[in-house]
């Protein structure tokens, strides 16, 4: 079952119903609490990294990866119903996972074939981003393209979210025995001056030296 070659209409139907069930069933908290909890985690990591914001965000990204992998591993059993090995089904699986994790629909998601310069990638944008909401009133820490060194490091304030999705994605890709592994970055971030939030998943063949 885990090695299904392609997701069909029934799996899509199950995924679209199932994500609402999992979201409904999940223990929840106020988004306000979550956003301030994350801000304080970042503050601690910045202090631990001697005020080096990119180092703190990298640390946060790694923590996210581990958390995402753990969460996805626990959901692999029921998730099997909608998984496939086909890389073109990943947008569907990401949409379901995103909704289960964050309760928000991804409105726009695109699959991009491999080019001469870039690996296979999937990009998705969000209508709104709750993760950095606490920063509106933050006075001590400044997160922008310069302080996060986004152009060099690809790190953003949403790095923990990108990490969590990357961890979850790789747990699924391993489970379906996909020949690919993924890396996810927030490629547009409000804090970095972009007009909206966008995430990109890059896919590399396990045996290649692409990355």
């Amino acid at each position: 079952m885990a090695e299904r070659e392609k997701v069909g209409w029934f799996q899509r139907f199950l995924g679209n119903i199932g994500k609402h069930f999992y979201w409904w069933k999940a223990k929840k908290m106020s988004a306000l609490m979550m956003t301030y909890d994350f801000l304080e985690c970042v503050r601690i990591l910045v202090e631990l990294n001697n005020n080096d914001i990119p180092a703190a965000l990298e640390d946060f990204r790694e923590i996210g990866k581990s958390a995402g992998y753990t969460v996805a591993t626990e959901l692999l059993g029921p998730g099997e119903l909608i998984f496939s090995r086909n890389i073109k089904d990943v947008p569907f699986m990401l949409k379901v996972a995103w909704f289960i994790f964050f309760g928000e629909e991804i409105k726009s998601i695109k699959f991009h074939d491999k080019t001469d310069t870039e690996p296979i990638k999937i990009t998705w944008t969000l209508d709104r981003c709750i993760f950095c909401a606490a920063l509106k009133k933050e006075k001590e820490l400044v997160f922008n393209r310069e302080t996060m060194k986004t152009d060099e490091t690809k790190l953003t304030y949403g790095s923990v979210v990108a990490g969590a999705m990357e961890g979850a994605l790789n747990a699924i890709l391993e489970y379906v025995k996909s020949p690919y592994y993924g890396k996810i970055y927030e490629t547009k971030c409000l804090q970095a001056g972009d007009p909206f939030s966008e995430y990109t998943a890059y896919f590399y063949e396990k045996d290649s030296n692409e990355n």
């Binding site: 979201w23 999940a26 223990k27 929840k28 908290m29 106020s30 988004a31 306000l32 979550m34 956003t35 909890d37 994350f38 985690c41 923590i63 996210g64 581990s66 958390a67 995402g68 753990t70 969460v71 289960i100 994790f101 964050f102 309760g103 709750i130 909401a133 923990v160 969590a164």
Partner: peptide, 15 residues
């Protein structure tokens, strides 16, 4: 933001 809820799942793992 005051209206929205989110999963608790990631909070304890990250914390």
């Amino acid at each position: 933001l005051l209206r929205l809820k989110c999963q608790q799942l990631f909070v304890p793992l990250i914390y």
